[in-house]
Every structure is written in C-alpha cells, then in structure tokens.
Write a protein that binds this DNA or RNA. Structure first.
Length: 366
DNA sequence: AATATCAACAACCGCACACGG
DNA sequence: TCCGTGTGCGGTTGTTGATAT
C-alpha cells in the first residue's frame, strides 16, 4: 500500500505556468493567505496540483523574492554554508533573504558545482594525506552507522525510523555508491574528515558531520547528513565556539575548540582540517536553537581544560592553532578564487596545494 | 540556415516529518 | 497510540534559450 497521491492528477495541468495562472494564484493568496495548498487550486480556479501552486508561489510569485543574479556575496555565503550543511538548500536559503531553496540549488548545480569539482579534482591529487586519513576515520567510525534513505528506498517495507531520529538519519547512508550530477567543494573535502559516532546528531555536530568520499558520488549523499535539535525542532547552524558570537548572519572561521584526545592517527595536519570551518552563528529565521540554547539542552559541553564549549557529539576536536582556515583558503577572500572562470581553476588548485604544503611543513616543524 | 549540443532554469516527484483527530 | 493529512524538502527531470558546428 503506497501513500495516497497528494492530489488527483487526472485533468490537472502540468508544466510551465501561464501568466493568467500566476495572476489567479497571486490574487487568491493575497486575498486568503497561504496554506491549505491542497484545496487552494480548487478555490482559486486553477487546474493545478496544490504542491505545484505552493512551489510556484514560494519560488516565483512571493513579493519578497529577490530576482536577478546571485551576487558575489551571496555566492560566498552559499559556498560557505554548503561546506557546512551540504545540500540543505532551505537552510541555506533561510540565510539569504529573497532567495529560495530551489534557486540556490539550481545555482549550485549549474554554476558552483562544476567549478568546485574541477578545482577539487586538481587539489585532491595533492592531498593523499587528507584522503588517507579520512578513509581511516571513515572506516573506523562507520561501524554502527545509521540506516540511510537509500536502503529504505530499495526496501520500502523496512522499519520506520523513530521520530526523534533526524530525517537525516533516515535518508542516505554515509557511504554508498551512487551516481551524482554534482560535486562538493574542496572546502568540504577538507573538513570532511569525520563524522560523529553517536546515533543522534546534534546541531553542533552537524558542522563536523562529514566524511570523505568519491567526489563524483558525493553530493547526493550530502542530504543524508542533517541536523535537528534534540527533539526534532527547528534547525540552526551553530558553532563549536561560543565566545565570539556574532550578530546577524556573520560567518566566521572559529578557533580551536579543544584538544585532541586519544587520536594517534591524526597529526596536526588532520587536526586543523577537522574544524576547518565552523560558523559562530547562522541564524535560523524559523527560530531554531542557538548555541546557548544547545548548551542549555546539554548538547554541548564545556571543556574544562580549554575553558571552551564543545559539542558532545563531536568525537574529535580541533587544534585549529596549527592549521587555520585562512591558511588553507588563503585569507578572508578565500572564495574569490572560486568565482574565477574555469581558466583559473588550475591556479586555484595550486593555491590550495601550496597552502597544504605550507601546513605540512608547519606540521613537520611542530 | 539548419541542426546539435550544452547550460540554466522551472517544475515535478517522492519521501519524511509534524500535527491533529 | 495510531492513522491520515498537510506541508516542506531535496533530488531529478523536462524545457528553453544560447552557442557551436
């Protein structure tokens, strides 16, 4: 028994929206407000599926939408957030006023993704240490991993997931073979070195909740790594470090959040990468938890030694002192190279490579 | 000028969660 | 507690326009 379709598809119009349809929909929503999408088409006199109406309204008809090209600043934010939360387009979009998840997703897939892939392919050749370390981490931590969405998809009769387990946990497995139309950023590759070993993801852990995989197969799997508050409430991006809390949507690399414990396999090179990117506070307009709230919920702990806050779920923390984000990406305008045309991707890769070499040397010296 | 190819964008589809009865 | 419905989300597909041959 499958789920009932969202609407009776017979007789419904599909495809592009005509201007008059847009007008009808807009007028109806202006008069009656959003919601009740299923019944809306009927009341508005539209031969459309309710979901289609909702999508059309959200993505194109809303008054507060910002049209036009994605600016460089917006692109920066998208790349940074994607490095942190992967394909969670709605969450990314929530930090870009006037932009929709669909728009961002399309922009990523058509613009950023390709550039980044080329870059990372170049860069990955120079990162055997990273990938090897990542593989070790992945293998060691994959044990007892969560069930993913894909297996469930293959076997739809599989048991349902508990409600307090995040949607992420019910989606794709962390490691799997799948085809992909996109690739993740070098940034993500760098930070993608471990995932929390506990079942229940916390907000804080999500920042670190990534692993290395085949870049050609990576993007689709990103969706599986999600974060939700302890009770499944709205989500928020939080940092592993609290004291430099910023206002608004500031995105700042954070310093180290603790000491490595019992991790002989990872040198300083690894340590730095581990927390290469985190955000002090990215707000969730839907009212998600902040780090402080996370603390109150016990999702983050205070590290006695360092006097800093750390995520309970993060099994490793970073020695960011050794290996800063700026070192890797070349400073504040780290994404500028990303915006360059494809011709300069070689240069970009070289930049990254140089940064890696630099850090390796530092590590050796240490 | 005609056709093929590609990129960008719009829309659809299926799944999972939230919520109320 | 269970079940059905509404909604949101992300992946995928389809369409269109631009460019190359």
């Amino acid at each position: 028994m499958g789920r009932a379709p969202c609407c009776e598809k017979v007789g419904l119009k599909k495809g592009r929206w005509a201007a008059e349809e847009d007008e009808k929909l807009a007028k109806y929503i202006q008069a009656n407000g959003e919601g009740s999408w299923r019944s809306l088409p009927k009341h508005a006199g539209l031969l459309r599926c309710g979901k289609s109406c909702r999508l059309r309204w959200i993505n194109y008809l809303r008054a507060d939408l910002k049209r036009g090209n994605i600016s460089a600043e917006e692109e920066d934010i998208i790349v940074k957030l994607h490095a942190s939360v992967s394909n969670r387009w709605s969450l990314i979009a929530s930090n870009l006023p006037g932009r929709t998840d669909n728009e961002i997703k399309n922009y990523w897939n058509s613009h950023l993704c390709r550039r980044i892939h080329s870059l990372r392919r170049s860069a990955s050749e120079s990162l055997p240490l990273i990938t090897e370390t990542a593989k070790e981490a992945m293998l060691s931590e994959e044990k007892g991993g969560r069930a993913g969405r894909f297996p469930a998809k293959k076997n739809k009769n599989s048991h349902s997931t508990p409600k307090d387990v995040t949607r992420a946990s019910t989606k794709k497995p962390l490691v799997e073979n799948s085809t992909s139309n996109c690739y993740n950023s070098s940034i993500e590759a760098i930070q993608s070195l471990h995932k929390p070993s506990i079942e229940k993801e916390t907000l804080s852990s999500a920042i670190n909740d990534t692993i290395i995989r085949d870049p050609c197969e990576e993007d689709k799997e990103q969706t599986g790594r999600r974060m939700v508050g302890s009770s499944g409430e709205k989500e928020t991006l939080v940092s592993s470090q609290s004291d430099e809390k910023t206002s608004g949507n500031s995105l700042l690399p954070c310093p180290s959040v603790g000491k490595i414990e019992n991790d002989q396999s990872s040198g300083p090179f690894y340590h730095g990468i581990d927390n290469a990117l985190c955000f002090n506070e990215v707000t969730d307009p839907n009212g998600g938890s902040t780090l402080n709230e996370e603390r109150q919920k016990g999702l983050v702990v205070h590290t006695e030694e360092s006097g800093e806050w750390d995520s309970c779920s993060s099994i490793r923390t970073s020695g960011f002192d050794y290996w800063s984000w700026d070192d890797v990406m070349g400073g504040d305008d780290m994404l500028s190279w990303l915006r360059e045309s494809d011709e300069v991707e070689g240069e970009s890769a070289q930049k990254l490579e140089e940064a890696m070499d630099h850090e390796k040397k530092n590590a050796m010296a240490a």
